[in-house]
């Protein structure tokens, strides 16, 4: 089974659900990713999913979708494209070190314990040029011990 098909199984959608797409491209006209990569068209991706074709991990929409739901808000069928993309990312294994650390914390504590996440993501943060923002983030600093959720 292609990965795109497996990804759809993680959502509330099946391939046939995209048959309702009218091809109006209103999603493309409001998509935030167009501010980053002009020419992005979620409708074209829906069409490929409907046809059972592949979607690649390095496509701008898959890489940069911010989950803003502007597409859903504009779509006559209110198709939740961000949730489809999230499933594609999951299936294509495109998690960033930060996302892995986030999930690691949830597995370990049942909650996101920020000191743990930051510690795990340090190499990524150093390499990614995040340290120059640290002075702007001082108001976020606080310390508390992690809470372990029972049964998680």
């Amino acid at each position: 089974m292609p990965k795109t098909e497996q990804a759809l199984e993680l959502t509330d959608y099946g391939r046939q659900d995209f048959a309702v797409c009218l091809g109006c491209k209103i999603c493309a006209s409001v998509c935030t990713v167009n501010d980053l990569s002009p020419g992005t068209n979620p409708q074209e991706m829906l069409q490929r999913l409907f046809l059972g074709q592949d979607v690649a991990a390095d496509e701008p929409l898959v890489r940069f979708c911010t989950g803003c739901y502007r597409c859903t808000g504009a779509c006559p069928w209110e198709i939740r494209i961000p949730e489809v993309i999230r499933a594609l990312r999951h299936e294509l294994g495109t998690e960033s070190p930060f996302e892995k650390a986030f999930k690691g914390s949830v597995s370990l504590f049942g909650r996101v314990y920020e000191p743990y996440v930051l510690m795990k993501a340090v190499p990524f943060l150093l390499k990614g040029g995040y340290m120059k923002h640290v002075t702007r983030w001082m108001e976020y600093v606080g310390f508390h011990l992690p809470h372990k959720v029972k049964g998680m």
């Binding site: 990804a7 993680l10 959502t11 509330d12 989950g67 949730e83 999230r86 499933a87 594609l88 990312r89 999951h90 299936e91 996302e99 986030f102 999930k103 914390s105 949830v106 049942g110 909650r111 996101v112 959720v149 029972k150 998680m152």
Partner: peptide, 23 residues
């Protein structure tokens, strides 16, 4: 009491994500 993470936007599996909040 003893609430857990909601999963935010990080989980691609809808059932897994919803499971956090159902708990």
């Amino acid at each position: 009491p003893d609430w857990n993470c909601c999963g935010a936007f990080e989980y691609g599996d809808r059932k897994e994500l919803t499971g956090f909040s159902k708990r």
